[in-house]
Computed example of a mutant assay.
Amino acid sequence: STLESNNMVLGIDEYLNKKSKDKEIDFIAFKKYYQRIYKKTGSEYKNWVDEIANSRYENEVALRERFPKQIPYKKFNSKHKLYIFGHSLDITDKDVLRDLILNDNVYTTIYYLNKGVMGQQIANLVKVIGQDELIRRTGGSTKTIEFKLQAKLVERKG
């Protein structure tokens, strides 16, 4: 690949405060959101987020029509599944991760390699969605996030 044809996004997180981030743009080319836009790699997920949100509404309307006396409808909504493998969940991807993980119609399974990796993923996720949201979404009736140990790689011959 050449510099022009490479669409790999490697960038830094926003480090400026809200007032300065839109004015001080000397290093904008190093920020992930800029690279996603510039290299045209980063907006497809927005369509998925909209589709997921709309499907929840459509499911609820259909259930209300079919079972007018049935309550609560939320328990019958089908959840979309999000599987995350080999991702640090670092704050540099906060914009994408928040839109997907905080969607109430998404059940997220995060795979980890070992307990050390899991601990780092949890710490990073706190930076992305906040500790209260993480606690709410990892247990009880509001659970939408699950951590699973990644199975060992099985080599296949042939």
Rank of each mutant, 00 (worst) to 15 (best):
V49F: 09
T138W: 01
N77F: 11
D104L: 10
P72Q: 04
K152I: 12
G158F: 13
P72A: 09
E44F: 07
F67I: 03
E44M: 08
E4G: 07
N114T: 01
D90W: 02
A53W: 02
R156K: 15
L97D: 00
T138K: 01
T2K: 14
Y15G: 10
I110K: 00
R66N: 13
K32P: 01
V49N: 07
Y112W: 10
M118V: 02
R56E: 05
F147S: 01
G139V: 07
E133C: 06
V106H: 00
V61Q: 08
I84C: 00
I122R: 01
D22W: 09
D104Q: 10
L153G: 12
V154A: 09
A123C: 13
R156H: 14
Y33M: 08
K21C: 14
N105F: 01
G116C: 08
I37M: 07
N77C: 15
F85G: 03
S1L: 14
L63W: 01
T109V: 08
R137I: 01
L113I: 04
S78E: 08
Y57H: 15
S78N: 05
E146R: 00
H87E: 02
E24N: 08
G130P: 05
Y33R: 02
Q121E: 02
L125D: 00
D95C: 04
S78C: 09
I71C: 09
Y83V: 00
D90P: 01
E65N: 13
S5W: 14
P72H: 09
I52C: 12
V96Q: 04
G119S: 15
E146V: 02
I25L: 13
G42T: 03
F85T: 04
E133T: 06
T142S: 14
E51V: 11
I91R: 03
N77G: 06
P68L: 03
E58L: 13
I12H: 07
I28M: 13
N17M: 07
D13L: 10
I129R: 14
V106L: 04
I71W: 12
E60F: 03
Q35Y: 12
E65C: 07
Y73L: 05
I84P: 00
D132N: 13
H80Q: 03
G158S: 12
F85L: 05
G158L: 07
E14A: 04
N114P: 03
K94F: 07
N6K: 12
K18A: 06
E155D: 14
R156Q: 12
R137T: 00
P68A: 04
I91K: 05
K23D: 11
V154H: 05
E44G: 06
V61G: 03
E146Q: 02
N7F: 13
Y107V: 00
K40N: 15
D13M: 09
K18D: 05
L10I: 12
F27Q: 10
K40M: 15
E58S: 12
N114L: 07
L149Y: 04
G119M: 15
N47I: 10
Y112Q: 03
G86N: 11
Y33F: 09
T109E: 00
I71R: 14
L113H: 11
K69A: 09
I25H: 06
A29T: 11
I25T: 10
M8P: 07
S55Q: 13
N77Q: 12
D90S: 11
I25G: 08
Q70M: 10
L16K: 15
F85I: 05
G11E: 06
Y33I: 02
